[in-house]
Nucleic acid binder design. Structure first.
Lengths: 380, 380
DNA sequence: GTTGATTTGTTCATTTTCTGAACTTAGTGT
DNA sequence: ACACTAAGTTCAGAAAATGAACAAATCAAC
């Protein structure tokens, strides 16, 4: 389907997916084409069902009609390999989840491909239009993925080394498949479906048992030279600090991840199983809880401040599943960011907090497929 | 001149400037064009004097002829406002310096524009071909420059605030002018003329009285949302450390800049005026000198390690003017990088040291003009 | 040597894509 | 009702890219 589009058509689709609904004249200017050329391209895309007319904007002269991507011109499946059972969702081009189910997690890529293929019919059952226009599968996993978004170079969690997962799934299911690291997938989903749509450069910091991070730079996901951009979790924050499972000492991961916070609490004899518990203890004046949250928050804030200093992003989006960011932890994080950023910049970089639901990873996975559908492999 | 090129021609020029000499067939594949189209575009550019044939590569079949940019198809002037007197150079598209002179530094942008305009005739005097093909002026300065490379948003050194320097010079001299931050200019010059030509993502760390840093990401200079990407000097490296002139505490700048190293030496009663002096003292066993170099080196190494973790660049290029990197300081920096980078990556990111001469800034400035000539303002 | 294989690069008729200019359409302001 | 404005369309002609056939320059093999 995407292959049938001409290069101008694909460029247009990309511009709209980045800038939102635009009038034909605006699009012509953005692409540097004449109104005449634009007219034809838009007509073709509307006939193909890719675009549709939305609101009419009244100004002086003839009103302009905004064109937007038709949300139901393509559907995507997203699977998260971060949970067991693995969630599997079906969504449209707007990221709206249409169907949801789960499949057993496995470490064998062939078993995964099999489970996905077997799961597809029931996922698509009630949605014949999606069945017809299913345009890609996306898979999110914890680990390193190469720049073709096809091979998992390494994953500790799944115990993988150079696994061509995308190809395996593609061959078994017959559907275009792309894989991506979890944090990077969330960044793409925020850019495509979420609150970072209009921002060209931003970073996502995902806070969970581990700490993930990914960057969008100049409108593109930046993966780094070895696919390792955003490995903020293993920045040294407390030189000479506690040993980390990575082999170094004092990594951010050893102080600020939910796992670390819980472990520190346990070590201090606190009966806490979640961030909320610790926050509660801190609010009642428990010194150990306060100390732990302070330490974790300062470390995370410092790391984010360093990120801001180094990359000057237009937004920091902190996503977290557990607890809330309104307590001591969040306050300390914000404070630490403020005090460690060049005063000239302090407060200039918006920090947005987003509490995410159980669909984040699967939706992120689907967004990878959507991204490849919209932008395509060739970025000419 | 550049405006006369068609969009395909400009694309081709960009590809060659990024990838070096290529055969017509290779270029056709890279641009996704047919050999037929390529043939015509290449012929036109050769006729225009922009490209020329270089070596012939023999393989099986008809040998291929590599085309490269004609180094003398355009000339550029570069001026560094970092020194007094300000160096002013004339160079070709390869970055080869053809003429060199200097002009008095001033804080008044109009005086600068005047000095540049007055200096041009004598700079171009012995080079009539350059006079004819002078395609741009570049200016490097210490401070923040906006993304149009036209306005200096802020410069402490020059005491400027929102100065439209490029426009002022352009209007006075009649020549296309662009300005850029010093570290970013060096990064561009390394990408265009230097040793980072074939690397898509890399960072330059420039070590002098202050510490500068700039990133190339996916083949493009990344300036950051407020033009502040690369402000590594004000990363907090020693939390709660010495106060910095920026208003925070423990910035990298307060420990690892040459200025800081010299000040710390003075404070310790060492009679040192240069890095070499301190290195010498350290080599003779002076405890204070060793301590200072250790502290400075560890801090810089840690900052670079953080940069590697966050951005995973394909190369770190450390440029420095003073002293050498073979002594204790360099050793400690390298060691600190190694120990603070994810073990999986240790040694994976090449660290290249480059001792630079007095022309760096001016050549960097010229490269900004060259970059705008090659890539153009519109990156469509 | 001569022949065949191989790959680069050119030519040219044809097709695709884009433009410029005139025109239609759908409003606003008076 | 009238001009005025800007969006979007139409269509002939210009520009750019393609495909296929071909010329050119080498290697490799007999």
């Amino acid at each position: 389907m995407n292959a049938l589009l001409t290069s101008s058509q694909r460029q247009l689709v990309r511009v709209i997916s980045e800038s939102g609904p635009l009038s034909r004249t605006e699009m012509a200017n953005l692409l540097g084409l004449s109104k005449a050329a634009m007219s034809g391209i838009a007509r073709d895309l509307i006939d193909l069902g890719v675009l549709h007319e939305t609101e009419t904007v009244y100004g002086q002269g003839r009103p302009s009609v905004r064109l937007d991507l038709h949300p139901e011109c393509a559907f995507f499946v997203g699977i998260s390999l971060l949970e067991d059972p693995a969630p599997m969702i079906l969504c449209d081009l707007n990221g709206k989840i249409i169907a949801r189910q789960s499949m057993p997690l496995s470490r064998d890529p062939h078993v995964i491909a099999e489970a996905i293929t077997e799961g597809l019919p029931s996922l698509l059952e009630a949605h014949p239009e999606a069945k017809e226009k299913l345009s890609g599968i996306g898979v999110a996993l914890s680990g390193f993925v190469d720049e073709t978004q096809a091979n998992c170079v390494q994953s500790t969690l799944l115990n993988w080394q150079d696994v061509p997962l995308a190809r395996i799934i593609r061959e078994r299911s017959g559907i275009e498949t792309f894989i991506e690291n979890d944090a990077k997938a969330v960044a793409v989903s925020e850019k495509l479906f979420g609150s970072a749509r209009e921002i060209q450069s931003f970073s996502v910091v995902s806070l969970g048992d581990g700490i993930g991070c990914a960057h969008f730079i100049d409108g593109k996901l930046y993966r780094g030279n070895h696919g390792g951009a955003g490995e903020i979790a293993h920045c040294t924050i407390e030189p000479g600090g506690a040993p980390c499972r990575c082999g170094k000492r004092g990594c951010l991961d050893t102080v600020s991840s939910m796992k670390a916070i819980k472990e520190m609490s346990r070590a201090e004899g606190l009966e806490c199983t979640s961030l909320s518990d610790i926050e509660y203890e801190a609010s009642t004046g428990n010194a150990a809880a306060i100390r732990i949250l302070h330490r974790a928050g300062s470390a995370l804030g410092l790391a984010i401040a360093n990120l801001i200093q180094i990359n000057d992003p237009g937004l920091i989006l902190i996503t977290h599943v557990e607890g809330s960011f309104d307590g001591l932890f969040g306050t300390v994080v914000n404070q630490a960011i403020e005090t460690n950023v060049l005063p000239r910049y302090a407060g200039q970089t918006p920090i947005r907090i987003k509490r995410v639901d159980g669909d984040v990873w699967a939706r992120g996975a689907a967004s990878i497929a959507a991204h490849n559908f919209l932008i395509g492999p060739n970025t000419n």
